[in-house]
Design a protein around this nucleic acid. Structure first.
Lengths: 155, 155
DNA sequence: GTCATATACTTCGAATTTTGAACTATTCAA
DNA sequence: TTGAATAGTTCAAAATTCGAAGTATATGAC
């Protein structure tokens, strides 16, 4: 069972190649982000980027694979920094909508545009390849948002 | 400056689309991994996957965007679990090589093959699209490993 | 209407993880 | 041989994450 490691290495399946690439890119982007956004914690930066529009905290918790109390803490940080405000969701007054302030939007814009630049440099892809990659990435994202990986994780 | 948000949203650049997809996939894979590998911490799981061949701890620290003391702790965990051993690097006796035991290789194989399956389900791509994506992902990974994002992060 | 139950978020203390500074051992260069 | 640099370790402090109990609102049964 362990002696097929060498064959695995010699000819990795496309899926594994894809994952390796995704991990490498993710980590490289995270590293670069750490250099850019000086005042935000990791989680705060992620949340800022997720807030392309007002979102409920529960939605963010699901999205960011974490627990409500963590979202509370992260939102507290961003609110204290003046980057977002909480507004009651008119459709369900138990819930809050997190809304970026103008300052928050500006910072988010900055991060997003820096990120585009980083992608370009980190990936080394030309415009055509970037377009191809983006098309597939969108497809993947749609699929993930649509389906939360069905059943079958067996644990 | 903040009023171009709507245009950004309406027609995101390919780079940002790519990054969004990569983040979504990364997080989904992480979530799924958490369900699979019962005994390993997050960091331990990452290290196991990185150890496709014996590696120095310093290399791993660079690779995993962390600090030597974190690598020490993570390696301690995997060593205690019988998944790897430390061997002095014959080329520099200050350094350790982390080498997977047979048990470690088996577990790594298992994780890697589960990951392939997860990619398939999470991405929703067909074989042809997966091959395209993998080709680009490899290219990206090669570029990242080759160049550590040159200069220009300005901070 | 009102009572019971479910949901959205908060609080806060405990558990986990990560960090950084001081330390040991080895290498490298002069 | 000596001094400076590098690889990894230790350990206590800092940061992060979690989870259980709590508050407020919603929803459904009667």
């Amino acid at each position: 069972m362990s002696d097929d490691i060498s064959t695995r290495l010699g000819r990795l399946s496309p899926e594994i190649q894809a994952i390796m690439g995704v991990y490498a890119l993710y980590w490289k982007l995270e590293e670069a982000f750490d250099c850019v956004e000086t005042d935000l914690s990791h989680a705060e930066c992620h949340m800022l980027i997720k807030l392309d529009q007002p979102k409920r905290m529960g939605v963010l918790a699901t999205d960011m694979l974490t627990v409500p109390s963590t979202i509370t803490a992260t939102a507290d940080g961003l609110e204290k920094a003046g980057l977002l405000t909480r507004e009651r969701d008119p459709e369900d007054r138990r819930a809050w909508l997190l809304v970026l302030t103008e300052q928050g939007q500006d910072l988010r814009n900055m991060l997003v545009s820096v990120a585009g630049d980083l992608f370009h440099r980190a990936s080394g892809l030309d415009a055509d390849e970037t377009a191809q990659f983006a098309r597939l990435a969108c497809k993947i994202r749609d699929n993930i948002l649509k389906t939360g990986i069905p059943e079958g994780l067996t644990k």
